[in-house]
């Protein structure tokens, strides 16, 4: 591979948009509007990096992951995986390339086919890359994968309903790894699990990405979880990225007012800290993507908003090195930051 290719990001999103048309009537449908679930997202993930994507419900993070997965087609922009634009490739060709990017879903109770044994589920996925493996070689591969995700291979002939939620998520992870993908998208992979099981799965994902050198986009609404596993965090609000930074920077020195509110809203499991810390409580609920406010999507809830915020959508701008944020008021909120153009 040439030096240039190494420099360019592994996965690069450019102004990705996913809009859902809102229609009325059947047979003779009229387009009456659009839900702009993802509205101009640009992101770059380096090889071997774990990028956390955090945001509240309805911010479009799941739609974005499904757009990258090509389960939904983007309405605009480009998604380049190793330099190749997936949005420009035909659906037929996409099917052949799917083995390179795999997804781990949120609900381990819904993401496994209840009529198939663990062996069948994983075997089917292995066959996507190795169509001719069979017999003992296949059993060996399946056991190796199960072992890797911490499941006893002797359980391979059991069915999903015979496993607990945490074990099912392990099966789902094994299935996602089976085609030997380069990119993993994990969409809220631990949200449906209990705290004690959650930590098991997080440790497993951290270990696997380290050992296999996987690149991962890790999506969650829980900043605590995202912070634990990610190298960098992107914060999403109403279809747009509002800030990117390292976990430490995001947690300790958030630039964007929304990130500040998000960090401040998280309840810490520490009573003394909870008693003393001052919370920045936002007014109201996140607006609906059906009917987004004009200008900065956050301005109706933002304590720092001024007239200019309602006029235009702020662009992501590097106020500090590698710390892009989308807020025009950052120089005033954080004196000393971002005065340079």
């Amino acid at each position: 591979m040439s030096d240039g290719a190494v420099r360019s990001p592994f996965l690069a999103l450019e102004d990705v948009k996913t809009h859902f048309p809102v229609t009325q009537g059947f047979l003779f449908r009229r387009r009456t509007g659009a839900v702009k679930a993802v509205d101009g997202v640009s992101l770059a993930i380096q090889r071997g990096e774990v990028l956390g994507l955090v945001g509240e419900s309805g911010c479009g993070k799941s739609t974005l992951s499904r757009t990258i997965m090509q389960l939904l087609r983007a309405s605009g922009g480009s998604i380049r995986l190793e330099g190749r634009d997936l949005c420009a490739v035909s659906m037929k060709q996409i099917r052949r390339e799917r083995i390179n990017f795999q997804m781990i879903f949120q609900d381990p109770y819904a993401s496994l086919n209840p009529r198939m044994t663990v062996y069948d589920t994983i075997k089917e996925a292995i066959r996507t890359r190795h169509p001719h493996v069979g017999g003992r070689a296949m059993i060996r591969r399946v056991s190796s994968l199960m072992d890797k995700v911490g499941l006893a291979p002797k359980l391979m002939r059991k069915y999903p309903h015979e496993f607990s939620g945490g074990q099912r998520q392990r099966i789902a992870i094994a299935r996602a790894l089976a085609p030997e993908p380069k990119l993993i998208l994990a969409d809220e992979p631990v949200s449906a699990l209990d705290v004690s099981i959650q930590s098991q799965i997080l440790n497993l994902l951290a270990k696997l990405t380290r050992e296999l050198g996987l690149t991962m986009l890790f999506i969650s609404h829980d900043l605590g979880v995202v912070k634990y596993i990610s190298h960098r965090i992107a914060v999403m609000y109403l279809g747009r990225i509002v800030e990117i930074g390292s976990p430490r920077e995001i947690m300790e020195k958030p630039l964007h007012p929304y990130t500040q509110a998000l960090v401040s809203a998280i309840p810490f499991p520490d009573p003394r800290l909870e008693r003393t810390r001052r919370r920045m409580v936002l007014e109201g609920d996140p607006p609906s993507p059906m009917d987004p406010p004009g200008g900065c999507p956050f301005h109706p809830r933002c304590p720092f908003a001024e007239a200019a915020c309602a006029r235009e959508v702020p662009a992501l701008k590097e106020y500090l090195p590698d710390r892009p944020a989308a807020c025009i008021r950052i120089p005033e909120i954080h004196p000393g930051i971002g005065s340079r153009e």
Binding site: Q167, V195, Q198
Partner: peptide, 24 residues
């Protein structure tokens, strides 16, 4: 104690999370 330690708390930095083995 195990429950508290297994939370990906906002303070610890990147080390392995404590896990409770097994299931309820």
């Amino acid at each position: 104690q195990a429950l508290q330690q297994s939370i990906p708390s906002l303070h610890d930095k990147g080390k392995s999370l404590y896990t409770i083995p097994g299931a309820p």
